[in-house]
Design a protein around this nucleic acid. Structure first.
Lengths: 167, 167
DNA sequence: CACTCATTTCACAAGTTTGTGAAAGTACGA
DNA sequence: TCGTACTTTCACAAACTTGTGAAATGAGTG
């Protein structure tokens, strides 16, 4: 049996990109933005031009343009002007997964705040409706408050992997 | 200045329900299901019939039916047959917010697994693309692994409020 | 100064989601 | 067994999303 080195499987990559785009769509991402993100993630190059993205995905440059605008706005993708060329190149922002996740978590705060307005509308926590809504509010407020500590642990965990403590 | 007791504000409640339904829609809930959930949460009664839901929301009974089916399937709402009547009543399942949030978090595992497939398609962690995808996979796997502990803390926190330890 | 080519903008077509009205289904009460 | 009242199912209409082609924009280059 011959040794077979790890090798890039373009076809698997295509369906991977498509799968991920669908998952991200559940998180509220526009479909095309998801595709662009994972084409960048899946590229061995560190940055790609809009034309390269369009070609690899087999979609029109128009779609890429809109997706890029969205992603740059979210600070997930950085635009890198190439000196001496009209092509810009685009690359994933470092730690953007971390950031996006944190941002998504902040939705919990929004929910908690909205629930609090419901408590007020219900006439306070002593009404049956108010009590139910207050329970919901407290849960999400608590999760939101404790999430930063969890993510800080991740940062610690990661740096421990890179800089193991002396035995 | 006269004392004014807390009082239910129906108009504020209506916009609260609509707001929340929109927020839940971002989490992938069908719009109508969100409305039903918050109409139940906002009710001083513990359970409502389909007809009551339709009337309070000013929507057709048909819409309620579909939403209820969805919510019962998700185990967020329980169907309570009323003896001696053909009306069923529907109530929120206790702790369903907690459960729904846990379920949503399991999406992180899905993402992590998908990322791992991307690593394979890229030809392993030693390729540039594979390394990027592996970083993403590890982050979501870690968050997923540590989430249960966080939510367990909530359970502890809540029971502490209800049964304060002796001084 | 005009030419070239990557990118962006715009209007539209195709596909999907969402809520309704009408009709069928179901179980109680007389 | 029939009538009544609630609920569910179904097919469709309206609204929204998404991606495309074609034209406009803008930055280098001869």
């Amino acid at each position: 049996m011959a040794y077979s080195p790890p090798q890039r499987d373009e076809q698997a990559m295509r369906s991977f990109v498509e799968n991920m785009a669908r998952l991200l769509a559940d998180w509220g991402f526009p479909r095309m933005a998801g595709r662009v993100v994972f084409t960048l993630m899946a590229a061995d190059e560190q940055a790609l031009t809009a034309a390269e993205l369009a070609e690899r995905l087999g979609v029109s440059p128009a779609g890429i343009s809109g997706a890029i605008r969205y992603l740059v706005h979210l600070n997930m993708v950085a635009r890198e002007p190439v000196p001496g060329s009209r092509r810009d190149r685009y690359r994933m922002v470092d730690d953007s997964w971390y950031e996006v996740t944190v941002a998504k978590m902040s939705l919990l705060k929004t929910i908690s705040d909205a629930a609090d307005q419901g408590v007020a509308a219900a006439g306070g926590e002593n009404t049956p409706a108010g009590a139910k809504l207050a329970g919901m509010r407290d849960f999400y407020a608590w999760v939101q408050d404790n999430m930063p500590a969890l993510l800080a642990q991740w940062a610690a965990h990661k740096s421990r992997l890179h800089h193991p403590p002396p035995a």
